[in-house]
Design a protein around this nucleic acid. Structure first.
Lengths: 156, 156
DNA sequence: CCAGATGACTTGAAGCGTCAACTAATGCCG
DNA sequence: CGGCATTAGTTGACGCTTCAAGTCATCTGG
């Protein structure tokens, strides 16, 4: 192992392991709470949330995929299931037949509204309220810098 | 929505969205690189790494699961596949027949050693070298605080 | 000393995500 | 205009994770 690789020193490694552990565990915590209390995955929640806050409670698929940080394929599968459950509807856009517009139904909106408080409470409990305001702004900058490296577009 | 819920203010929400996006995308980046260059998932890499740095290149399953941040069930499936590929071996512990001890083989070690430089380079590229030393220590504290909230045990 | 409880995994089925292939609509360029 | 490339989304198969159930081994109280 004596080649030109810049290995991580102890601090870097510790930081990385902590971040990696976070990446693995936080999704589980969020999914668990949402699933248990509302029958939604975090991704499904984001999809419904993304629709609910859009004009006309509608949004085209690729947009929504970007918002929810997932692939178009994944979104397509998820929206199909949400449609079967009666939480969203799909139809092609009037002006461009390639585009599919998803709309959240009243039923979907109700589920979302019912799920939101518990979800926000969980986010607060595990992240927001665990950190000081200073740490929150540090975290924001850090996360955005790393994100910018991963995905040079998308300012958020 | 005028109940007693403490919603997130704009800054809190932006921070959370950035962290959430990070949680979704970083695993993908790591998995992609490892898969492409070494045929390993990040989880498999962690399993092999966890074994390689343990005394006797061996470790009991539950230990390893904790180290790799996964469930025991998940680990069991993964180790079975790694065993079929010839990268690890399993046998019951001498003193307690309930315990399974996994050991990394020479072949597994070679794969790990071959994978490590590329993986470390990726971690550097997207995380470590993107942040200042100050940010790194901030991040370490932040991640550890959140982790402590999620999993009150496990000091790391 | 043995019967039930607990601990440490393993297994199988079900569901979700990814990848590659496919369909359909639109844009572009000669 | 007409054909080919591009864009947007869908689909199916496969692999992986989770969840619940099952298997042994070990402890423990009577």
């Amino acid at each position: 192992m004596e080649d030109g690789v810049r290995w991580l020193d102890q601090d870097e490694l510790a930081t990385w392991m902590a971040l990696a552990a976070l990446m693995f565990k936080l999704p589980g915590v969020l999914d668990y709470q949402l699933q248990r209390d509302s029958g939604l995955t975090h991704f499904e929640y984001l999809v419904l949330a993304g629709l609910s806050e859009s004009p006309g409670r509608s949004r085209r698929m690729s947009d929504l995929a970007g918002f929810a940080n997932g692939s178009l394929s994944r979104l397509s599968h998820v929206v199909k299931r949400l449609e079967q459950r009666g939480f969203v509807e799909r139809r092609p856009a009037d002006d461009d037949g390639r585009i599919t517009v998803a709309t959240i139904t009243d039923a979907g909106y109700e589920v979302l509204v019912a799920a939101a408080p518990g979800h926000v409470a969980t986010v607060r409990e595990y992240v927001i309220d665990t950190l000081t305001p200073d740490q929150l702004s540090q975290l924001k900058v850090i996360a955005e810098q790393v994100l910018a490296k991963i995905d040079p577009s998308k300012p958020c």
